[in-house]
């Protein structure tokens, strides 16, 4: 079943070029899709449209087969969770558990269930020891993990991370990547990972590249990284591992565009021995 489906969707902010232009895109249930693109490519607009924070000017958006509209909005938002960019402007409450509770309170769950969900969500992101901590004292990565927990408390089937790692240091980025990977694997959540860090696309089953509101490249991350010149025209640089593969090939070692550091290391080892 398709978790998210965009059919010929157009949206523009006021006058000017559309932010999303006749877009066709879908993600299967349980899929992990990376959405790449430089600033202003329309990737964040995609996230906002999927959650009904923005309303499309034309076309249709479906979440698990239900069209996104004013009427279905409250149900759609239970299914679709978004984690935003800025770790400091997503939390409503000052304490971790109060903030994680916020969404669950909004949908009117009974107290005991909210308590259970806080426990579940904090365990899932590895923040259980911080249940009663003050959010403003946490690190960026921890704040974003709390934001993920706040979304998880609503038990969404789709999670969209809208550049959630872009304001974090490398360590915070790794924390988020690990958490999201685990959620995808263990909770079977469909993930839409929007980012401009090319390395992070390696987490995904499939990557799409957006430019000027359109999807311009699509395929397995390794395959996309193989098309260096094309990526450059969309202002996207190769991840470091891709650059290494490319240099190795130029130097006469037959390294394919691999996914992980381990695989690359194995290949180099084979070539050397």
């Amino acid at each position: 079943m398709k978790a998210i489906e965009f059919r010929d969707v157009t949206f523009s902010y006021g006058e000017g070029a559309p932010a999303v232009n006749h877009l066709n895109f879908s993600a299967e249930e349980g899929e992990f899709v990376a959405v790449l693109g430089h600033n202003g490519s329309g990737k964040s607009t995609l996230a906002r449209l999927a959650d009904g924070l923005l309303t499309a000017d034309g076309g249709e958006i479906r979440v698990f087969g239900n069209p996104v509209s004013e009427k279905t909005l409250s149900d759609i938002r239970k299914d679709v969770g978004i984690v935003f960019q800025n770790p400091d402007s997503q939390a409503v409450a000052s304490l971790v558990e109060d903030d994680v509770a916020f969404g669950a309170e909004n949908i009117g769950l009974p107290r005991e269930e909210i308590g259970r969900r806080i426990g579940f969500a904090l365990r899932a992101v590895g923040m259980e020891p911080y249940r009663t901590a003050t959010i403003s004292r946490l690190s960026g990565g921890q704040k974003q993990r709390v934001a993920i927990a706040g979304v998880l408390a609503l038990k969404p089937r789709i999670m969209i991370l809208d550049e959630s790692t872009s304001m974090l240091d490398p360590r915070g980025r790794r924390e988020i990547a690990e958490v999201v990977k685990r959620l995808h694997r263990e909770e079977k959540i469909t993930v839409l990972f929007i980012t401009h860090f090319m390395e992070e696309a390696l987490l995904a089953d499939r990557a799409v590249v957006m430019n000027r509101g359109e999807i311009v490249m699509e395929g397995a991350p390794a395959e996309i990284f193989g098309r260096h010149e094309e990526l450059l025209t969309y202002n996207l640089a190769l991840p470091r591992i891709g650059v290494i593969c490319k240099r190795l090939r130029e130097g006469g070692i037959a390294a394919a565009d691999t996914l992980g550091i381990e695989e690359l290391a194995k290949e180099i080892a084979e070539c050397v021995s």
């Binding site: 906002r48 959650d51 924070l53 409250s74 938002r77 239970k78 679709v80 969770g81 978004i82 935003f84 402007s89 997503q90 409503v92 558990e97 109060d98 509770a101 916020f102 969404g103 669950a104 309170e105 909004n106 949908i107 009117g108 769950l109 009974p110 107290r111 909210i114 308590g115 806080i118 934001a147 706040g150 979304v151 609503l154």
Partner: peptide, 18 residues
């Protein structure tokens, strides 16, 4: 936006954890 995305719709139907 973050509040909207987490299903906030005012005080009606809302429960309290604490």
């Amino acid at each position: 936006d973050a509040m909207d995305a987490r299903c906030y719709s005012g005080g009606k139907k809302r429960t309290k954890y604490k």
